[in-house]
Design a binder for these strands. Structure first.
Lengths: 134, 134
DNA sequence: CTGTATCCGGTGGGATACTG
DNA sequence: CAGTATCCCACCGGATACAG
């Protein structure tokens, strides 16, 4: 387990690069983590392998066709998932994770666990803050 | 190094929890990663320790007073940074990372490195996608 | 089945000017 | 110095209806 100081050194290089993120691309990749359905899609494809639109929808509670399509397009655009259109009638399209997509899944799991483990602290912090500012 | 299958198991638990994220709090915590200035602030406080508003501003190229204040409030609300108002004239306020904030920094560094290391692939994926859809 | 078009509210990000 | 007020635009998330 590295010291916090060693971690800051790594953080330094990372944050310098993110500061020089002229076109905002790196930040937009990270933004996938905060998007409503991106994580669910990546996870579903990680577990399910190659899935069709309707199959993914069935695994994401509450998602609409529109939002699922938009989410899939965003992830495809950044190379995280691959879309295969069989060009049949009726339509048949499926999606799978790319190597990049698997990398995102790998990188996100520790962060997910951390957020889960500290969810109560976040909730408490918000309650305290909102009370104070009344 | 764990297998991808083992990772999926961890992913399963994490994603189940995120699916049951009724109030969206967990997702909002992750959203800090995609916000324009949050990462920079967390990093600046990680490196700089306890800093005043103007000191943070000097370390973030291009940030406006308004956006820095809003970013600091959001991070404070979620318990990631602590704000100390000395109640003096002229005003004197400083900020520091909390334990939760250090946890975010720890969790983000691997992801930052991954994004940096694959930036070219993301750019290439976008180029290919945008060309294809013309 | 997969996807688009339209319309809407909320919020992130920003420019600018002002206040205690 | 730290923060607020006002106005702006873009985009996310969603509801609903429609199309190939």
């Amino acid at each position: 387990m590295p010291s916090f100081e060693a971690l800051l050194q790594a953080s330094q290089a990372a944050c310098d690069a993110l500061s020089a993120d002229d076109d905002g691309l790196k930040r937009e990749i990270l933004a996938h983590a905060g998007n409503r359905w991106s994580l669910g899609v990546v996870h579903a494809l990680g577990v399910g392998g190659t899935l069709r639109h309707a199959e993914i929808a069935r695994r994401l509670d509450g998602v609409t066709q529109r939002m699922l399509t938009r989410t899939l397009r965003q992830l495809e655009r950044d190379g995280l998932i691959a879309r295969h259109d069989y060009d049949e009638v009726p339509p048949r399209v499926d999606y799978r994770l790319t190597e990049l997509g698997r990398g995102l899944l790998v990188g996100m799991v520790p962060l997910w666990r951390w957020v889960m483990d500290n969810a109560d602290d976040f909730r408490e912090a918000r309650r305290a803050f909102d009370d104070k500012t009344l």
